[in-house]
Design a protein around this nucleic acid. Structure first.
Lengths: 340, 340
DNA sequence: CTGAAAGCGCTTACAG
DNA sequence: CTGAAAGCGCTTACAG
């Protein structure tokens, strides 16, 4: 079957009794084709088992018909992150619905970034779904300047953008943080600590900002002793919590900027003999698998990853089609479990 | 930059003062080209920033220059499995070293499998790295029959193969199981239970076989009360362990066919008031992240996933190049931690 | 070793 | 609406 010559547009034309031009027109939307010709061509396609040769088509159109999912992450962190899996799977599925294959590219080092930037700017993909959490990543700017449609996952740091803001799809981190802290305040908590994410990431910055806003609105004193930074890892959540407990043993709630860190926080609280939520209420962020696995189950902020991936694909395809979108911000929601 | 016409082989030829044929020859290995011409062409390539147009090349050669990583898994289980991430990342890296992009394809449903089989057999990729754990998956057989180079991850079930065994790269499950059980026996354990993997998977079957072999060699009575099946999930590990404890409260060791299930086993043992390893020694399988996260740390069998991915790519590229390999079996190794 | 030429399979103005 | 023709950028026998 591999050996046998694949049918070409020429075979279909002969079979249908029309010219190759007409077959091509049917293939490309059927404009300027009589219903009879279209029917004959479609029947011939069915009979011959014809499948378009994308290479020939791409050679003409200059389009590759594929899209890259590019991960520019120095660490392997993202791969360990359950959110990453959901995102990758979601993008693959959304593209599959358009019959567009996804090329997975991982550029962890500067050398790999150069190689891949070259590959992409050479026109091998029509657009890039870019996932990178940290600032100072030059890839996005380079691709955009080269005219390649790009959509980022998550709000970019200002410095990334260059001329204007980069197109992106993100959950509303700040509002999610606000909702969680408002919930803790509403539950009567008054000494609410926070374990932040890395503050060189937009998510880290935004969630902290949301926390501060609500405390201010609630008339609770801003107290830097109540804030300790983490790096989204479980261990960092435990360490930061321990530090907070030393500084403020009277803590009655904790907003932790990721579920994974929140699990670390639970461990630290248990070691310190604090009951959750009785002594200390704990709120996470993400609604990842970690939130369900935790004991007690984590009350957390759900990030709509399924919608993020769907929107990233939609925005990228629109951009490729000439209708750029600058940003899509998606709402988060509070998920209540046992920890708060 | 996107707007500007990309340099073609024609530009390079003019720049170098040779014909396009000569440029092409330099591009494809430099056979039948004088050193002077080659030098002139290379200089011209550098000066013009020429990058080959893969579509044009593919149109001629019939090769796409890309490879698919195909996951045919009805469940989302594989994505949650840390091994999957390691495998995917390893294959991406190994292919990147050859400048070959990886197309990620996920075919969870029969409909998607049909779509993707059609896509692949239409020649859009040169070969397929196939990951599927369960038997009864028709995709591998179909692709092989269509003449597409395929390499499986893991030993296929006999039924999958059709005519002959499918090319595959796998860790030596049976030997790994033997090593673990031998280790438990050597540590003086005599009533060694086993939580198996799903017995419709080769890994599940092989690990059980290895366990039985060693017990027989050691002259320990085969006792089916000591064996309970799991499905690789954490919960199933806990449930199976609880069952085993009810049937055989005198259990002094447990070989669990995956680290994730072993974590469930640890939970069940703790609930039953058994100390690990004092009362019951526990051995896992995989050496995944779960093994380190467990408390106590899991003694386990390391699967060489980095080598598996590297070998899969090597074997696939060899197959594409006309030098097929039928199978590569990689050794496992015992990793000692606290649980046994 | 090298150039001229054919051709890979398709799309797209161009005339009708 | 439709056919004939040019051309996308490359590779590869074919003569030299």
């Amino acid at each position: 079957m591999n050996r046998r010559r694949r049918p070409t547009i020429h075979d279909v034309a002969r079979e249908a009794g029309v010219s190759r031009g007409t077959v091509s027109r049917v293939l490309n939307g059927g404009r300027y084709v009589s219903p009879e010709s279209a029917e004959a061509v479609n029947a011939a396609i069915r009979r011959t088992g014809y499948v378009v040769n994308r290479h020939a088509r791409s050679l003409i159109t200059g389009r590759s018909g594929s899209v890259a999912f590019l991960l520019t992450e120095p660490q392997e962190k993202f791969f360990e992150d359950p959110n990453f899996n959901v995102l990758l799977r979601g993008c693959t599925a959304a593209l599959a619905a358009h019959d567009i294959p996804l090329l997975l590219m991982i550029a962890g080092t500067r050398a790999e970034q150069r190689r891949i930037t070259r590959y992409v700017t050479a026109g091998h993909v029509d657009g890039v779904l870019l996932v990178s959490s940290h600032t100072g990543d030059p890839v996005a700017g380079q691709l955009v300047r080269a005219g390649i449609p790009v959509v980022l996952c998550g709000k970019p740091m200002d410095s990334d953008g260059g001329p204007g803001p980069l197109p992106h799809v993100a959950a509303d981190d700040r509002d999610g943080a606000r909702e969680m802290v408002r919930y803790l305040v509403g539950a009567g908590r008054r000494r609410i600590g926070m374990v932040t994410g890395p503050l060189d990431t937009p998510g880290g910055v935004e969630r902290l900002a949301g926390y501060r806003e609500v405390l201010a609105d609630a008339g609770l004193a801003a107290d830097e002793d109540l804030v300790a930074p983490g790096d989204y890892s479980r261990a960092s959540g435990a360490a930061a919590t321990q530090r907070l407990l030393e500084r403020r043993p009277d803590l009655d709630a904790l907003f932790v900027a990721s579920d994974l860190m929140a699990r670390g926080a639970l461990t630290a609280l248990e070691r310190a003999g604090r009951r959750v939520p009785d002594d200390v209420a704990v709120g996470g962020f993400d609604d990842s698998a970690a939130a369900v696995e935790a004991a007690p189950g984590l009350t957390t902020i759900r990030q709509p990853w399924d919608r993020v991936s769907a929107e990233m694909v939609r925005v990228l395809l629109a951009d490729i089609g000439g209708e750029p979108t600058s940003a899509v911000i998606l709402p988060t929601s509070l998920v209540r479990r046992e920890s708060a």
